[in-house]
Design a protein around this nucleic acid. Structure first.
Lengths: 245, 245
DNA sequence: ATGTTAAAATTGATATGCAATCTTTGGTTT
DNA sequence: AAACCAAAGATTGCATATCAATTTTAACAT
């Protein structure tokens, strides 16, 4: 499953003719951040990235701007770009925002979603179930986020979808800062319960569940501000650029 | 020895230590778009903007990327950047997203906001009231949006705040496409009612009101897809760059 | 060790060049 | 005259080179 071949990408379902190097690079770096290859605080030197991706500094700069607009990267004048290091407060805000969005989506979906929609959600639930059973934390994590994304996608509102996706990316970044482990089983149970409640049209209960669900997640966060992981950018990105050039 | 070497600018009243030329330019263009100086569909030629702002094409490019990430500008490969021309569907999605965010904020604020908060909202309401009485549509419009922004700011969640601000910018863009006029009086009444409901802790009623409020706004939209306004970019931006140099 | 200064590296921005692609123009054909 | 087509012109996307400002590092003296 080579994610990115040449020229076109699968993004949120539809194929896009790219050709935009900076956009491409920002997406690759995003993936590296989400996959915890690039950790918070990591310096993203323009020249280094330019060398890695075989592009000019200008293109890297554009990619970094994209990333900073997305909140994944922080740019400091004359000092450079770094993978963002969110504070605990920011974490709470991000999850509050997620709660608000998903509660809104829940209200729209409740009782109003077709059989196909519920089926899709339940299908995802099953995938998650398997991952949790196999104790595959990496995959459980990924599918956990994916569930939320599918859920929001069913609202058929691309604006909400994009805001939500951005928040999910930032939660992935947050998990880089956390060492505590999740009760994947409990989270999974919540997902199943959510589907049930929504299908029965119990909006208020569903919204309450969403709030508690996110509260539980953020509660499990113990930010460790200290550790400065000394990581080589080139190495961290190696697996992502290997398919390039 | 460039003319703009000072490093700080008067923007929206307050002085800002900028240093980031592209960020600065994107903000100026944003204002021009919001103020309907730059209309949807308007071509934003890199060279033209570079000449206007006295910067290199690279900087303009960075600004355009910022704007496109914000949804205010659409970039087409090898064709250039244009002020976005939202569809009606997009308008609905944007207002749905706004509804979701503000309903969430309402739930957080209801009954829980200090006296100072309610006072601030009522103060804004008064300003609006005057503007509507004076039949100052431009100002009514502006204060109308501002009310929503203040409302969200009181949630003390910068993440939600930023998402909301972005949506508000996009609604400003939407209004460029609309010729129908609003019932400012009715909208004003809604704002007042909202404060009352929230202060009394009537969350559900408040949320319902928010939904209806936005529904009324979007209902007043009659997109006119046709007209291609032939506007000179330089002229449209003239008043904004006058402070430069 | 501590503080200071000089050198090196990095960023922010500019200028220029070039290939790819889009747009326009002018002629040609129907 | 309208439709078509191909060459010229303009614009974008990207690379390279350069420069001033600033930060970081290294070397040095206290």
């Amino acid at each position: 499953m080579q994610d990115f071949a040449e020229g076109e990408y699968a993004q949120e379902g539809r194929a896009i003719a790219m050709g935009n190097r900076s956009d491409e690079i920002s997406k690759i770096v995003t993936r590296a951040i989400i996959h915890k290859q690039l950790l918070p605080g990591c310096k993203l030197s323009e020249q280094t990235l330019a060398d890695i991706f075989n592009v000019s500094r200008a293109v890297v700069r554009q990619a970094l701007i994209r990333l900073s607009e997305d909140g994944l990267v922080t740019m400091e004048r004359n000092r450079g770009a770094f993978v963002s290091r969110p504070t605990y407060r920011e974490a709470v805000e991000i999850y509050d925002a997620l709660t608000i969005l998903e509660q809104g989506v829940a209200a729209q979906l409740a009782g109003r979603l077709g059989a196909q929609g519920w089926a899709e959600l339940r299908h995802h639930l099953e995938l998650q179930h398997k991952a949790v059973e196999e104790k595959n934390d990496q995959l459980s994590d990924q599918l956990g986020s994916a569930f939320h994304e599918v859920f929001v996608r069913l609202s058929r509102n691309t604006v909400v979808q994009q805001m939500h996706a951005q928040l999910i990316r930032r939660t992935a970044l947050l998990r880089s800062l956390v060492n505590s482990r999740f009760d994947y089983c409990g989270l999974l149970h919540d997902h199943g319960m959510l589907i049930d409640l929504l299908e029965q049209g119990k909006i208020v209960e569903a919204q309450k569940l969403i709030a508690v669900h996110h509260h539980n997640v953020v509660k499990g966060y113990l930010m460790n501000d200290e550790p400065q992981p000394e990581i080589d950018t080139r190495e961290a990105l190696s697996r992502y650029v290997s398919q390039e050039r």
